[in-house]
């Protein structure tokens, strides 16, 4: 294995370890969040985002790392996001957590993983068609919220922090 593969493996082991310790891999946690009854995965994801965004934006400002925005292609993000949400609700796993769920013995994740590999193969076949239709509608390119909103990132970050921490207090108060 090369350096990249080793680094990926080590990072993945730590990623999987934290996903499992946070108890976010389970079908019931994922569906519980969508049924708005158990906010565990929101607490986990939003905590990661709050911490990660500060470090990543600082490293990017210092030009140590480069940001890599995914394109704000309107049709693709809206339709793709909706399809993902619908499939996720039935499958009860997302791509990353399906593998983790398998690791903690929830072997029905195998069917989800096979489905997703088949879905990826379908997408590869659909791609030329999608490229001339959905993907061609309107693409705002690889933009960040600061450019899109005309606000400094150091205005947006505190807004996220205050908003999300408020949400956390509300989750705890409601015992979600």
């Amino acid at each position: 294995m090369n350096t990249g593969q080793w680094l990926g493996l080590v990072t993945g082991v730590l990623f999987g370890f934290l996903l499992q310790k946070g108890r976010v891999l389970r079908f019931d946690k994922q569906i519980g969040a969508m049924l708005l009854k158990d906010m565990t995965i929101f607490k986990f994801m939003l905590s990661a985002i709050l911490v990660g965004m500060v470090g990543i934006l600082m490293l990017s400002n210092l030009e140590i790392i480069t940001l890599s925005h995914k394109p704000m292609n309107v049709g693709a993000v809206l339709l793709g996001g909706a399809l993902f949400g619908a499939g996720w609700a039935v499958m009860g796993f997302c791509p990353g957590t399906s593998l983790g769920a398998l690791g903690e013995g929830r072997w029905h994740a195998v069917f989800a993983i096979i489905g997703m590999v088949v879905g990826a193969a379908f997408y590869a076949e659909l791609y030329p068609f999608l490229k001339s239709t959905v993907l061609a509608w309107k693409d705002f390119g690889k933009i960040g919220l600061p450019e899109a909103l005309g606000l400094s990132q150091w205005v947006i970050v505190p807004i996220f922090w205050v908003g999300i921490i408020t949400l956390f207090f509300w989750f705890e108060k409601k015992k979600l």
Binding site: G80, F84, G87, M91, C94, V118, F122
Partner: peptide, 20 residues
């Protein structure tokens, strides 16, 4: 799980990303 997986992955590739 299988059918949900197919739909979700087509969506994730179209949107160019998943919850990760």
């Amino acid at each position: 799980a299988f059918v949900g997986g197919i739909i979700a992955m087509i969506g994730a590739r179209l949107a160019d990303g998943c919850p990760s």
